[in-house]
């Protein structure tokens, strides 16, 4: 396959950045998207040019590092995948492919396609945990009966990998799908009840302070989420937040 890549290049956080065109040939349909970028970078290095900086770690679809907006969609045209699981067979010979970093004020570009997603870390630190003494007194998890539906929904929420595709896809750069998944995974379990009020209040406050936008329920986040996190989590977070607000 021969492709034209239109890639966002930005030397540093302060650089203005722009789209640069690259022609790449002999791309195998069996390559992953990141492997295709590896080939491009090898070519650039051999030419003495600066390779395209992009984030990656596991290349198994679970690290959530590869923050790329491919052809106008988070992680490209395939559903329920990250960019490492996106294969070149999803494109056609002669295609032009736009590759951009996540766009959100709360996710500033560090370099090229790498964005700073530490805003998510700070939201987690604000309440995405339970305070448990684990120094040798840990109870068996199954000692507390949990309704099957709640256990399943909590597990589904916990599959969020914090990749930021929800923020990238949302026209408002809202982080509510991410935050709601982190709130839900505890709100559905007895262990999460003790700190439930503070958790949702603090996490939502941190989310707002980071500069994420408001949810307008377009549902784009749910469609683009590589882990299929449901909008039901946002409704649950809304309930948790409103209930916590009235409690004071």
């Amino acid at each position: 396959m021969n492709l034209t890549l239109k890639i966002w290049r930005q030397k540093s956080a302060k650089d203005k950045g722009k789209i640069i065109d690259y022609a790449i040939g002999d791309v195998s349909p069996d390559m992953s998207f990141l492997e295709m970028l590896d080939v491009l970078n090898q070519d650039l290095i051999e030419k003495g040019e600066e390779p395209v900086a992009f984030d990656h770690d596991c290349r198994e679809g679970i690290c959530g590092s590869c923050s790329m907006f491919v052809n106008g969609q988070a992680h490209g045209p395939d559903s329920m995948v990250t960019v490492c699981q996106l294969h070149m067979r999803s494109f056609n010979d002669g295609d032009t492919i736009y590759i951009e970093p996540w766009r959100a004020t709360a996710f500033p570009v560090i370099k090229d396609l790498i964005v700073d997603r530490s805003a998510f870390d700070r939201i987690q630190q604000a309440g995405g945990f339970i305070s448990v003494n684990t120094s040798g007194n840990t109870q068996d998890a199954n000692s507390i009966p949990i309704e099957k539906e709640n256990a399943d929904n909590a597990f589904d929420a916990a599959t969020c990998i914090g990749c930021g595709a929800c923020v990238a896809s949302c026209k408002n750069s809202s982080a509510m799908l991410f935050v709601s998944a982190k709130v839900s995974q505890f709100a559905l379990l007895p262990q999460g009840q003790v700190e439930a009020t503070d958790r949702v209040m603090n996490m939502v406050k941190q989310m707002d302070d980071e500069g994420f936008g408001n949810c307008t329920n377009t549902g784009a986040c749910e469609v683009e989420c590589p882990k299929g996190i449901s909008l039901e989590n946002i409704a649950r977070m809304n309930r948790e937040y409103l209930s916590a607000s009235f409690k004071g």
Partner: peptide
Amino acid sequence: ARRVSYAK
């Protein structure tokens, strides 16, 4: 919340 738009 999004000052820079996507090219596509």
